[in-house]
Amino acid sequence: MTATISSKAAPVRFEAVTKRFGKDVVAVDAINLHVEAGKLVTLLGPSGCGKTTTLRMIAGLEMASSGRILIGDRDVTKLPATDRDVSMVFQSYALFPHMSVLENVTYGLTFSGFGKAEARSRALAGLDLVGLKGFDARLPSELSGGQQQRVAVARALVLEPQVLLFDEPLSNLDAKLRRQVREDIRAIQQDLGLTVVYVTHDQEEALAVSDEIVVMRNAAIAQIGTPRQLYDTPNDRFVADFIGEANLIACQIVAVEGDMATIEIEGYRHSLPSRGMATGPGTIAVRPSRLLIGADRGIPATVAKATYVGVRMEYTLTGAFGQVFAVHDDVDAPLEPGAKITMSFADKGPVLLPE
């Protein structure tokens, strides 16, 4: 089902935007970014990479040092937060503890000039939308962490912003609740056709909720793509290792024909897209789930560690190639540490990393 884009949803564009703090600290370095209307785009990266500063510049909580920021067709670069049609959901929820759920949700509406009756009507509709119908009289302290997060989402949604911003919204929730609330956020975004910019350092969360992911590193953009594009064809070592988990293995590119290459590791050969590379030394990235253990032909390896985690086995394998991490679904006949095995790659397994 294709979501209908909200009539208020607007694209966001960054044109060579830089943010400096003082003379020496460059938090965001001349980035160009386009968030389409009605899409959920995640800014992903390690601490200090510039993702939260980028989000805060959209909100107007930080001002760009240079470049332009547009929301829809409007240049908002120098506008304060109050003059931008955006709402933000914070990591801490920022609910008023002495106010009821309904009062928390109506708070922003009242300040935006809505009458008491309309503010109440909108707030009740917002609570219904996030699955909290009937919770309006409760205090935040009477809600679970997931319910408090939904109140924060409802409070932002009722303002019908052009852009909805999320700053690490799930970091205070336990693992099971994180999965449930991220599904809720994604469903609401798709149902309402909202433009959402979402910040997280959690790779799994980003893969689960996003139309597109912007991977940031050292104040710049390392790669932009769909979750599958980033997972299957990372641009470099950093993206390969940061999105999901990847084993980086040295190889020799022994042949290139058209857009396909043949690599060799200890006599084992495998064909894969060449990505514009020529014969010679190379590096591949291969996901743990795409390493095949026990094939008739492959790369000699030794099981250094075997860990049972319920639904699968996790193995650390060592060999002349170094050390790799692999997973296997067979939990009933696990390999023992010290076992000698051969290791190969799934057909759609490794990817060459351009140098």
Rank of each mutant, 00 (worst) to 15 (best):
L79N: 09
A81E: 10
T110F: 02
Y93N: 11
V101C: 06
Y93G: 09
D75A: 13
T106Q: 15
L109A: 06
R74G: 05
S121W: 08
S65P: 00
V89Y: 00
V89T: 01
A59G: 11
V86C: 08
D75K: 08
L102I: 09
G60S: 07
A94I: 13
E118Q: 14
V101Q: 01
T110W: 06
N104Y: 08
R68W: 09
T82S: 14
R84Y: 08
F96K: 05
E62M: 02
L61T: 06
A59S: 08
P80G: 09
R68D: 05
A117S: 15
L95Q: 00
P80E: 12
V76A: 00
S65M: 06
L102S: 01
L95D: 01
R120I: 11
V86E: 02
E103N: 05
D73M: 09
Y107T: 11
A81K: 07
Q91H: 09
L102Y: 01
G72Q: 04
G113V: 10
T106V: 10
Y107P: 01
D83V: 09
V76G: 00
F90Q: 05
L109C: 06
S66P: 08
S87C: 11
S121I: 12
G113M: 13
G115D: 15
I71C: 04
E118D: 15
S92C: 13
S66Q: 13
V89K: 00
S87E: 03
G72R: 05
A64M: 07
I69S: 03
T77N: 08
I69W: 00
A94T: 09
I71Y: 03
L70S: 11
F114W: 14
S92G: 10
I71K: 02
S112P: 02
R120L: 04
R74E: 14
G67M: 06
M63G: 04
G67V: 07
F111H: 12
G60T: 05
G72L: 06
L61R: 05
S66W: 13
V101M: 05
K116C: 12
